[in-house]
Design a protein around this nucleic acid. Structure first.
Lengths: 163, 163
DNA sequence: CAGCATCCCCAAGGATACTG
DNA sequence: CAGTATCCTTGGGGATGCTG
């Protein structure tokens, strides 16, 4: 489904020239309009099920641990449960296990149980997992680069209606 | 903080050659290792506060409506509350308002209240908002392109331990 | 029209204790 | 070591009704 409603309101798109001082990188310039147009087309072509799936996969990006796990595995290659726990710092076994199961379910990581005693299980990224990691990087670094802008925006917002 | 623990375990990174049949695009090839290395450096340099901020901003990507709003505004340029509600299809006023406030707080959209009767308020992306949209696109289209892989992975996972 | 108030549900996430 | 099982808190999100 995606965007509903009709094509009403051609809108000359008169934006540009309205941010008072967010002081940000000129991240568009290449081709904002073209990018948007293509993505709109892609989204309109999505079935309801595909749309749901898309959001569920994207949700990994918004949750606490998934990206940390994927990143750690991307760096190290293969890690055991305890090694991941050490690298994530702060994660509980419960959350780590849950996270790993979900990532495995979505085909982003592979779980290999050596079936030994004591237990030995290690995890590695799949091709899909590496793709996600690669896809996240631009956004990730962009967010980091603009951390100051976000902080400033929040302070402005929180300060003008709260006190 | 980021990744904790030491540099232990150089790990020759012996991956590659382990996905049984996820059947995905060869999304790396350009420079997976370099990308990871750079991102690790960036993450290690993050303060705890920056790390939290990063996750909070990224969370917009995982939630139900934020990206829909940003996308709609990216396409249309400027939209009123009701116009957004129509385009989002399924959103309630409550969630739309909440979403808009959060996006405004993070400096991603601008809210312009014309202070008329009847009320007239419209929203537009800020430079930061356009940046987020641009940053999301690669990942977004990647997820859409690989929807089939995710579906397959889930079916495989759900089928092998549930029944 | 824009949006706040209220009620309710559920998944993410933390803490803690226990097991094969 | 790698997990389960329990309990509890938050915040996203849907439904519905009311107001300036």
């Amino acid at each position: 489904m995606g965007i509903s409603g009709g094509r009403d309101r051609p809108v000359g798109r008169p934006r540009r020239r309205q941010e008072e001082g967010t002081g940000v990188i000129p991240s568009d310039g290449p081709g904002f309009d073209e990018v948007i147009a293509r993505s709109q087309a892609a989204c309109d072509a999505l079935s309801e099920e595909e749309d749901g799936l898309k959001r569920e996969v994207l949700a990994h990006a918004g949750n606490r641990w998934p990206l940390g796990v994927v990143h750690a595995l991307g760096v190290a290659g293969t890690l055991r449960h305890a090694e991941l726990a050490r690298r994530l710092e702060g994660v509980t076994q419960r959350m780590l296990t849950r996270t790993l199961r979900q990532l495995e379910r979505d085909g982003l990581i592979l779980r290999h149980d050596h079936r030994e005693v004591p237990p030995r299980v290690d995890y590695a990224l799949t091709e899909l997992g590496r793709g996600l990691l690669m896809g996240m990087m631009p956004l990730w670094t962009w967010v980091i680069d603009n951390a100051a802008s976000f902080r400033a925006a929040r302070r402005r917002f929180d300060g003008q209606d709260a006190p």
